[in-house]
Amino acid sequence: MNGVELFLLGRTLMKIGETAMPEPEGGSGRYGGSTRAVLIVASDVAAHPDSAVGEIASRTGLPQSQVSTSVARLKEAGAAITAPDPADRRRLLVRQAPELSARVMKVRAGTIEDALAAALADSTPEDRKEVADALEVLARHLSPRTSARARTRDKAPQ
């Protein structure tokens, strides 16, 4: 597998993940680009608690305005909290909420079986189990926190 194939696989997995999530509240249809940004920010916040919006924007490559909007949506959903930075009261630090909101619990309670079956329409149940098991292995090794540790190690002086 090369970098392009890995990138395309990642996009396919994102689409399957979007299909597996429950419909957004308010009947606004499937997830759009702005919701993807919220998920990217939520993942970064999980890996880097107490980060400022500018730091999240730098790590994710999203515009600062989009990160700010995503943080507001996460706060509204009860998934994140903010607090003033003690070192610079003008900045807000973002972290995951200590308690899961009903919306977050609903999203996390969903499973991928139906979305995976749809994506692998011509596959056998054994094939789908093999793919699901492989995804579990990838999730264990490549979680946002694991990826953050790898990036931190890469930047450490040798």
Results as ranks from 00 to 15, higher is better:
Ala156Gln: 15
Asp50Asn: 14
Thr146Leu: 08
Glu76Phe: 00
Ala20Arg: 04
Asp85Cys: 12
Ala83Trp: 08
Arg149Gln: 11
Gln64Cys: 00
Pro157Ile: 09
Leu9His: 11
Val71Ile: 12
Asp114Ala: 14
Lys155Phe: 12
Val131Trp: 02
Val137Ser: 10
Leu6Phe: 05
Met105Tyr: 02
Leu9Gly: 15
Arg153Gln: 11
Tyr31Asn: 03
Leu39Glu: 09
Glu76Tyr: 03
Val137Tyr: 14
Leu39Ala: 15
Ala97Tyr: 11
Glu126Asn: 00
Leu8His: 01
Arg95Met: 00
Ile81Phe: 07
Lys75Asp: 05
Phe7Ala: 04
Arg95Cys: 03
Arg128Thr: 00
Ser147Asp: 04
Ile40Gly: 02
Ile40Met: 08
Ala121Thr: 10
Leu100Phe: 06
Leu39Met: 14
Ala20Thr: 01
Ala80Val: 06
Gly61Asn: 00
Glu113Ile: 00
Ala83His: 14
Pro86Asn: 05
Ala87Phe: 05
Ile112Met: 15
Val45Trp: 00
Ala117Ile: 08
Val4Met: 04
Gln64Glu: 13
Leu116Asn: 01
Ile40Ser: 01
Gly110Lys: 08
Phe7Val: 06
Val41Ser: 06
Ser143Phe: 00
Ala46Cys: 08
Ser28Phe: 04
Val137Thr: 15
Glu23Ile: 05
Ile56Tyr: 12
Thr124Asp: 02
Ala150Gly: 05
Ala72Gly: 10
Ser58Ile: 06
Ser101His: 13
Leu39Thr: 13
Pro84Arg: 11
Glu23Ser: 13
Val137Trp: 14
Lys155Tyr: 07
Arg128Lys: 06
Thr19Asn: 01
Ala72Thr: 13
Val53His: 15
Asp122Val: 02
Ala79Ile: 08
Arg145Asp: 03
Lys75Asn: 07
Asn2Glu: 10
Ala115Ser: 05
Pro86Val: 07
Leu9Trp: 09
Thr82Gly: 07
Pro86Arg: 05
Met1Asn: 09
Ala87Glu: 12
Asp44Ala: 12
Phe7Tyr: 11
Ala115Asn: 04
Ala52Trp: 08
Arg90Ile: 09
Gly61Ala: 03
Ala47Pro: 03
Thr152Arg: 12
Glu126His: 01
Ala132Lys: 06
Pro24Lys: 05
Leu100Arg: 13
Thr152Phe: 01
Pro98Trp: 01
Leu92Thr: 05
Ala57Ile: 12
Arg153Met: 11
Ala20Ile: 05
Arg108Ala: 11
Gly54Pro: 01
Ala42Val: 01
Asp50Trp: 10
Met1Tyr: 09
Thr12Ala: 10
Ala72Lys: 15
